[in-house]
Amino acid sequence: MEVTTGFFYLFSVVLLYAAFRVITARNPVHAVLHLILAFSQAAGVWLLLKAEFLAIVLVLVYLGAVMVLFLFVVMMLDIRIESVRQGFWRHFPLAVVVGGIVGLEMAAVLMTGFHTVEAPQAMAAVVNGAGQVVEVSNTKALGMLLYTEYLLPVEIAAVILLVAMIAAIALTLRERKDSKAINPASQIRVRARDRMVMVNVPATRAPEPPAAPAAEESKP
């Protein structure tokens, strides 16, 4: 057995185990951790298929951002496990039917085989600016296509994502009333006569009469 075949079986076994534990773990934090393990093993399978760009994106985007965010959200929320598992057995037959259909489809694809699919190639042929055909890696070829032929769609997508990010920040931004932050613009516009205001407060009670002078001691 070749080394790549051994790694494929290793990654596949761990991936199946992690995916099974995602749906059977009682603790949601454990389920998220097993999902992170499943994504890492899927990235290893992508590397074996010589699709290093997809493997790197899977690790950076899902493991580095999405799954960590899910983990913090699950740990911060007070999730009641009993209420989550109330309808498990009620929906179990439907889950079995859907899982069986997916399993039959995968079995049909595997039994048919991939005879028409060529073996993955680590190098791709692209045409450079001088019109010459050169062989580069898949990641470099994808980058050259994105920033040459598909430059306008990439820029449009970047602008849309930027607008969505700014809109999300603007919608969730709230001014706190208990904040002690000082606006520098208000400090600059302040005037001397506005720093202190004299207010006439009416008297609430009559003034007391002045005390009588003490009698002078008699001289001897």
Score class of each variant (00 low, 15 high):
F114T: 07
V84Q: 05
L146F: 09
V61T: 08
V98P: 07
E155M: 11
V57T: 10
V59Q: 02
Q121H: 15
A122F: 09
A122G: 15
S137A: 02
L54R: 00
E149D: 15
V159D: 13
L63M: 02
V109I: 01
K50A: 03
V136G: 08
N128F: 09
F53M: 02
V57K: 11
L54A: 05
V134E: 13
E149K: 01
L48R: 06
A164K: 10
W89T: 12
G103V: 09
A107N: 12
N138S: 12
V73N: 02
V163E: 10
A141P: 09
H115M: 02
A122Q: 14
S137Y: 11
Y150R: 10
L110T: 01
F114K: 05
Q121F: 11
R90I: 11
Y150V: 08
F70N: 00
F53S: 02
E52Q: 02
I166L: 12
V97D: 01
T116V: 04
I160W: 11
L151G: 01
A55K: 00
T148C: 05
V117H: 12
Q132G: 09
L54H: 05
V84S: 03
W89P: 00
V127F: 05
E149G: 03
V136L: 01
M144W: 09
G64A: 03
V59I: 15
W46F: 07
R90S: 09
K140Y: 10
A122N: 14
G131D: 04
A157N: 14
L71C: 01
G64W: 00
G113P: 12
M165D: 15
A141N: 05
F70L: 06
G64Y: 04
V163D: 08
